[in-house]
Write a protein that binds this DNA or RNA. Structure first.
Lengths: 160, 160
DNA sequence: GCAATATATGTAGTTAACTACATATATTTG
DNA sequence: CAAATATATGTAGTTAACTACATATATTGC
């Protein structure tokens, strides 16, 4: 197998390679939704799917849940509000909070997406279910990083 | 292990999770270089490392090598030229081409980075060498995608 | 050997995340 | 219970990749 310099650099370029793979999958994801005639952007997935599963959430708890900084979530919510897929209301107990939920249109969209998800899950399973399973690898790495960060581990080698 | 909705959605959010992991590693990468007192941004890595290994390349061949669109490479090159880490000259045979190479300063910087790379490689190995090896998983998935894209695979399921 | 096509580079504008800062409301503490 | 601190949301600006388009030079084919 011929290899380019970056792939050959292996662990050094791991961040680059993760991003490259992410982009590639995201672009094809958009095309799959299009093939189903569904007006949906992959970047909406984390917010909408979480609201689909958890119904009502505040901006920060939603951000924590999907692992985004809150301004990223706010800008997605703005866009989704314009699309009338979500709506928000004030929390009566804690008035700082804005509670976000799917609209009827949002719920309808998400339910029409279930067959698409089925296809995506199957195609992704096909791709990732190699000798080293990518999903499992991600889970394992994230667990390892939670225990001790990349930087902390590197620091131990620096001191030696 | 408690899980959030996105992680639980598994294969559906794979692109999101790859990106999240990439960001996390990149940020720590920057801090590691800082800890060594080296003025280096992780985003420079693909270009500089490739030039370190291959000496002289044109803009497009460099872009292909690192897997970036050529305008991305051009803007990195502009930045690196300002830092005096690379320089360019016209190809005498094919005058459309701009040949790029490391300067002395670039070569020096890269060679001072070898001990840092050593640390990064060790820390990364520690993190990725779990039951399912992340690097191997990426390699396997990229190979699978090269053979048949995510979209093409999904299309087969749509037709059924 | 010229017209059509392909390739190489460059510019402009977009995108989808981020950080830093600002403000309002809740909660905690002396 | 008021001051200090913490939390929730929002805005502005940045970043690091992208696509679309433009131009110049090479190559190919009639």
């Amino acid at each position: 197998m011929e290899q380019n310099v970056i792939d050959a650099s292996g662990l050094l370029a791991i961040s680059t390679r993760l991003q490259r793979l992410s982009d590639q999958i995201r672009k094809d994801g958009l095309l799959i939704y299009k093939a189903f005639g569904i007006d949906f952007q992959p970047k909406w997935f984390p917010v909408l799917y979480t609201l689909y599963k958890k119904s009502t959430m505040s901006v920060v708890s939603l951000s924590d849940e999907i692992g985004y900084a809150h301004p990223s979530t706010i800008s997605l919510l703005k866009e989704l509000e314009k699309e009338k897929l979500i709506r928000s209301k004030k929390d009566k107990v804690d008035t700082r909070k804005r509670l976000v939920e799917l609209t009827e249109k949002g719920i309808t969209l998400l339910s029409t997406m279930e067959p698409v998800w089925d296809v995506i899950i199957k195609a992704t399973a096909e791709i990732t279910n190699t000798q080293n399973n990518l999903m499992k690898a991600i889970n394992e790495v994230e667990a390892a990083l939670k225990e001790k960060s990349f930087l902390q581990r590197a620091e131990l080698y620096i001191k030696k």
